[in-house]
Write a protein that binds this DNA or RNA. Structure first.
Length: 170
DNA sequence: AAGTCATACAACCGCCGGAAT
DNA sequence: TATTCCGGCGGTTGTATGACT
């Protein structure tokens, strides 16, 4: 019951510059120790998830905003072909880009472009497609995915932040 | 100039997996 | 071993903005 009252008090929607400043200031001072608990002492009427999303996607140091380069788009297309909708893995291959941004860009631009490219292929009946569809439809093997994931986990943006151990809960 | 439609982006929701107890 | 909690992920929705009629 108390929880529903709390939820009702939580703010939703776009973040204001003041809220951004509060979150940045708090994380600079205390680090990230518990998203669910941090919001209140930070002076934010937001859910932990909302704070985390805001930080990870927009406030975190090193985030790139703006247009994707041709190289980045090619990387996304290539990795999506290999991995499917593993946006977080794809994002880890593009420094400064977030999974959310890549996902949005994919849906807004790249998926349509690929669709267009496919439509430009010669016409084939469904029967013909079935006839020649002997390719592998299963996802990539786990070891391939793990290799990609471990490769990309070397550097994280939180490295530059104070660790939770050195900045105990206030 | 006003209304409508399409697009891009930001944010939320629900689910899942891992860690802690 | 079972349960709870939290963080993370992917899908989806809401909204602002620009293009078009």
């Amino acid at each position: 019951m108390a929880k529903s009252v709390e939820n009702r008090a939580l703010k939703k929607g776009a973040w204001s510059p003041e809220e951004d400043k509060k979150l940045i200031a708090y994380i600079k001072r205390y680090g990230i120790w518990n998203w669910a608990e941090m919001a209140k002492p930070a002076g934010l009427q937001r859910s932990g998830k909302s704070c985390r999303l805001r930080w990870v996607n927009y406030l975190r140091p090193g985030i790139k905003h703006g247009n994707f380069t041709k190289e980045e788009e090619e990387t996304i297309i290539d990795l999506h072909e290999k991995l499917g909708n593993r946006w977080s893995v794809i994002a880890s291959k593009l420094p400064g880009r977030t999974d959310n941004e890549i996902k949005n860009h994919w849906h807004a631009h790249l998926s349509k472009r690929l669709k267009y490219d496919l439509n430009s292929l010669p016409d084939m009946s469904d029967a013909e497609i079935d006839q020649y569809s002997s390719f592998e439809t299963d996802p990539p093997p786990t070891n391939v995915l793990n290799a990609l994931i471990s490769e990309s986990s070397a550097a994280t943006f939180t490295d530059s932040l104070p660790s939770s151990s050195s900045n105990p809960k206030p």
